[in-house]
């Protein structure tokens, strides 16, 4: 769950060359091999495909007007979706950890549903619900709000598929918080709101940021759930993954790879940035 968190917890290696745990070389070797085959090789292939394009063509493809519009739509929608997920996910994690109520187990299990459900199924379901004659869509249309086939629909689909990231990163951190910290704060006269703001939130903050960042990057790449509900109008509700798909259908593999590389680089920079920031924050907490 919290690879980035637990990796920073104490547990230092002694002198180099002398390790207590056996199997270091083998396990690291296998891990690296697997990462290479499953992650790095395809990524390299992706970059290779763009290599024979030349800079000018590459630049022309990735800065095409319609593609630029899709960047904007995707970024905005993903940003809003992950912010919404940050708020709702925090609330869900809080409720699941802090309170006991009937059906808690079921609710906890339901959180992972978006992971389990094929995204296309999610997309079709959401579209049916939010279409003008759907259950939700009817209510929204009373206020003259159209969700399906607009950028709003993109946000809904993105929120749906990436909600578990926030809940599942915040939950364990919230569970580990010592009740004494809160009691200490209250005994010093702090109000409940102050305790949340000054004690609980700072402790959850790194996990929450990780969850939001994961949710954001997942939303950037979401395809299945979004294309059904987005309407896919050029310049209005086309997302990046759709642009890649369109290029592929035109058998322009190089252009598809070029656009994909932009998404890839943006996601990598974001994840790396979050990890570095979090490392600094946690170093403070663990005193190293």
């Amino acid at each position: 769950m919290n690879r980035s968190l637990s990796g920073l917890l104490p547990g230092r290696s002694s002198q180099p060359g002398k390790r207590v745990l056996p199997g270091f070389a083998l396990s690291l070797g296998v891990s690296l091999f697997f990462i290479s085959i499953v992650l790095l090789l395809p990524l390299t292939g992706l970059i290779m495909q763009t290599a024979d394009m030349g800079w000018e063509r590459y630049w022309a493809v990735v800065t095409d007007e319609r593609v630029i519009a899709s960047y904007k739509v995707t970024l905005w929608a993903a940003a809003l979706a992950s912010i919404i997920n940050g708020l709702v996910g925090l609330l869900l994690a809080w409720v699941l950890v802090r309170y006991d109520f009937p059906g808690k187990r079921i609710m906890d299990a339901l959180i992972d549903l978006p992971f389990a459900l094929p995204t296309a199924v999610a997309g079709i379901t959401l579209t049916a619900l939010f279409a003008a004659d759907g259950w939700y869509g009817q209510i929204f249309s009373l206020f003259d709000i159209k969700v399906a086939f607009t950028p709003l629909g993109i946000i809904v689909a993105m929120s749906f598929t990436s909600l578990p990231f926030v809940v599942r990163t915040v939950q364990p951190v919230l569970e580990d918080l010592a009740p004494e910290d809160e009691e200490a704060a209250v005994s010093l006269g702090a109000t409940d709101w102050t305790v949340f703001r000054r004690i609980l939130f700072p402790a959850m903050w790194p996990a929450l940021m990780t969850g939001v960042a994961l949710s954001f990057t997942r939303s950037l790449g979401e395809f299945g759930a979004v294309i059904f509900i987005a309407g896919n109008m050029p310049y209005v509700s086309e997302i990046i993954s759709l642009m890649i798909f369109v290029r592929l259908q035109e058998f322009d593999h190089a252009a598809a790879s070029a656009i994909a590389s932009v998404v890839l680089i943006a996601s990598l920079i974001l994840l790396l940035g979050i990890n570095l920031w979090q490392a600094r924050y946690l170093r403070r907490l663990h005193g190293r």
């Binding site: 004494e180 200490a184 000054r198 700072p202 907490l285």
Partner: peptide, 25 residues
């Protein structure tokens, strides 16, 4: 004044911020 068994210091605050907490809130 209550002193907890495991100190319950606020980990994300400096020593001075910990001691100032009661006054600041």
């Amino acid at each position: 004044g209550f002193v907890f068994q495991h100190y319950a210091l606020f980990r994300h605050m400096t020593v001075a911020q910990n001691v100032a907490f009661g006054l600041e809130v």
